[in-house]
């Protein structure tokens, strides 16, 4: 646990600050989301420097045993988890997109096939207009070589 993680408790509320040089606002949103069923969370502060997090216990029968200080600690752990998730996300973003595109191209070929067929048909119809000479059979070239 980092030593700089301190919080103030005031009755059923707990307040702490997060350095946005380390944890982006996005990371804070993601971490906060995971606690919304347990506590009320309110954010304030200056996103260019630090965010103030105010947590409050939910007043419900299921929440009698909720320990706000424990949740604050868990929240801080979750910030670190989110930081790693963000890195994993970022480093894999392009490769994931490529995999999904390739996989779905194979899974749902119809539209792509139709498109390719249209292109082929268009090419066949217009083969005589061939200013770049791409319709010339390469076999012929081969033979002439």
């Amino acid at each position: 646990m980092s030593k700089d993680f301190n919080f103030q408790v005031d009755g059923d509320k707990l307040e702490f600050t997060i350095n946005t040089k380390i944890y982006s606002l996005e990371t804070i949103y993601q971490a906060a989301y995971l606690f919304l069923d347990k506590v009320y969370i309110f954010l304030d502060g200056d996103p260019s420097k630090e965010i103030i997090v105010v947590m409050k216990i939910k007043d419900s029968p299921d929440n009698n045993s909720v320990d706000l200080e424990k949740i604050a600690d868990e929240f801080h752990n979750e910030l670190l988890n989110q930081l790693l998730r963000a890195k994993v996300n970022k480093s894999n973003a392009k490769i994931r997109e490529y995999i999904v595109a390739q996989a779905l191209y194979n899974a749902v070929p119809n539209e792509v096939d139709e498109l390719l067929e249209e292109v082929e048909e268009t090419k066949a119809e217009n083969w005589q207009d061939d200013p770049m000479n791409i319709a010339k059979p390469w076999e012929g070239d081969k033979e002439s070589n």
């Binding site: 906060a32 989301y33 009320y40 969370i41 409050k56």
Partner: peptide, 12 residues
């Protein structure tokens, strides 16, 4: 409080 949580949830 629920409203504030809801708004925050929309940002993730």
């Amino acid at each position: 409080d629920e409203f504030a949580n809801y708004v925050l949830g929309l940002h993730s």
